[in-house]
């Protein structure tokens, strides 16, 4: 039971980064972006290329890809979503769905359907308090904690972060307060790209690398973001942890293939009882 809870903790932590990405994108761009799963997949494969094919150690490979992927996301936005700015939410959602297909299948085209893994040294798992943990999980926890701290600092202590929150709060007011919305959107994509790249690597370490690896997390990640409250970074974290732990614990009583039901139930509960989620913005203006 404790083991399952720990695994849930790790799952939750893995989901936090993409949940943060989802919530940031929703706040600034005002629509749910279904391509985030496939974006994680592509980034993970990019790291795979550097790591397993070119022999780079995982850490520098991730760092380089993360920054490159941030830039790539900006480019993708310019090509795909920028021409659609101002169109309705559904248009953007469908575009993101299409983008997701394209990205996932680029990965499939390049690497086929067989599962791959990163080239990392095998380390023996160790036991702590009767719970088996391995080195990858420790790295995951540490890396995510670092990423979350940096995100929090960014959002609360830097002008860019404040501007992102301002645009999420009131895009028109942000304009007349001198905030250039396109610039902020580019920054948001850059940061989101980094979050998704690292998230993809964490998934690749936890499970295997295969084309649907990221898309499998889409419903869960959105469930986490909605549970926590779309637009709230703290909510993304809380939502991800809750969904992660509950999903793992649910395998004790339910067949594991239906874990996806947990975020669905969470979304249903949120919609019925508290649409703004746990930490959703108290003042919402559509």
């Amino acid at each position: 039971m404790l083991q399952t809870a720990f695994n849930g903790l790790v799952t939750g932590v893995i989901m936090t980064l993409p949940a943060l990405a989802v919530t940031l994108l929703f706040g600034v761009l005002k629509f749910p972006n279904f391509a985030v799963g496939a974006m994680m997949t592509v980034a993970a494969y990019m790291v795979f290329a550097l790591n397993a094919q070119l022999g780079w150690p995982l850490a520098p490979a991730t760092a380089v890809v993360a920054v490159a992927f941030g830039g790539l996301c900006i480019a993708i936005d310019q090509l795909t979503f920028k021409p659609l700015r101002g169109r309705g939410g559904i248009t953007l959602m469908v575009a993101s769905l299409g983008l997701g297909f394209v990205l996932e299948n680029i990965a499939r085209f390049a690497y086929g359907n067989t599962a791959r893994s990163f080239a990392i040294e095998l380390a023996r798992p160790f036991r702590f308090l009767d719970v088996r943990m391995n080195r990858e999980q420790m790295i995951t926890l540490a890396l995510s904690a670092l990423a979350m701290t940096l995100m929090w600092l960014l959002l609360t202590r830097t002008p860019v972060g404040r501007a992102m929150r301002a645009v999420a709060d009131n895009p028109q007011l942000a304009l007349v307060r001198g905030i250039d919305s396109e610039r902020i959107i580019r920054w948001t994509w850059f940061i989101t790209g980094i979050l998704l790249a690292v998230g993809g690597v964490l998934i690749g370490m936890d499970r295997a690398l295969e084309p649907p690896m990221g898309s499998n997390y889409v419903v869960g990640v959105f469930g986490a973001a909605i549970l926590g409250g779309l637009g709230s970074a703290l909510g993304a974290f809380a939502g991800a942890m809750i969904i992660g732990v509950v999903s793992e614990l649910s395998t004790l009583v339910m067949p594991p293939n239906y874990r996806i039901g947990i975020p669905l139930v969470a979304i249903a509960l949120v919609l019925v009882f508290r649409p703004q989620g746990l930490f959703g913005q108290p003042y919402i203006r559509k």
Binding site: I90, M93, V218, V219, F222, G223, I226, L264, I267, L271
Partner: peptide, 11 residues
């Protein structure tokens, strides 16, 4: 529409 889309996706 945002929530509805996600729910239908999940279902």
């Amino acid at each position: 529409e945002d929530y509805f889309a996600i729910v239908t996706l999940g279902v």
